[in-house]
Design a protein around this nucleic acid. Sequence first.
DNA 1: CTTGCATAACTAATTATTTCGTTGTATATT
DNA 2: AATATACAACGAAATAATTAGTTATGCAAG
Lengths: 125, 125
Amino acid sequence: MRELTRAEEQIMQILWKLKKGFVKDILEHFDEPKPAYNTVSTIVRILQDKGFVTHKAYGRTHEYYPVISKSEYSKSHLKTFVNDYFSNSFEKMVSFFAKEKSISVKEMEEIMKIMETEVKKQKIR
Amino acid sequence: MRELTRAEEQIMQILWKLKKGFVKDILEHFDEPKPAYNTVSTIVRILQDKGFVTHKAYGRTHEYYPVISKSEYSKSHLKTFVNDYFSNSFEKMVSFFAKEKSISVKEMEEIMKIMETEVKKQKIR
DNA sequence: CTTGCATAACTAATTATTTCGTTGTATATT
DNA sequence: AATATACAACGAAATAATTAGTTATGCAAG
């Protein structure tokens, strides 16, 4: 999957939040200083060329939708990261952050609970 | 922490692997088609300006060292990612990937083992 | 010493990304 | 119909990143 550039990612984050939107809706969700209308419009069109969004036309105006979901993109992005920084091992990554105390005890307990459920579920089949 | 660009990251990965190296050593570790010597030299100097590497001079030639470790950088990078894609919750991220089956049962069992140890260790204090 | 080679530093050229002004057109308003 | 408004499309300009040529210098070999 193509990588999003900085500006593209910012707009995708807004679209993922909004689910859909006209350029003017996207623009509203920018913090000050807001970019020019045309800047947003251009980048949305680039995102469309790259296959990240599509649009529905209402006469001459376009309502844009994400085609790639936030989950899909994050999955692909994290995979690359795990591959590059943790020799493709989720385990290495997670245990690194557990040891680094980037994950709280409470979070770890939650994670263990979920994993137990998942392990059981996957072992049944 | 500044983000690494594509070319910069490639060189950092090599330096992290080598621990230290002259430009020519870095160059050797590129796959074909290798970039020009000067391309590598320029980017290493940019990395130095950004504070990612430093050097030890042997007369006129420089041996470069990472100043930011791979761990440090990956920590900062993943934090940004978790913040942007999982509303700053490691738990959300990990359980998403567990449910997606991106983490194998074997890996989950390992992770749970490590977390149990970590939880105990951190609860003692 | 002179020539050749290796290297860092500098700089120019190229390519990618971001930003936004301009244009043309459809639609709404008077 | 004439004018104003809103928008997508286009394109130019600005900025960032990448690539590599050129230059200057030190060192080694003859």
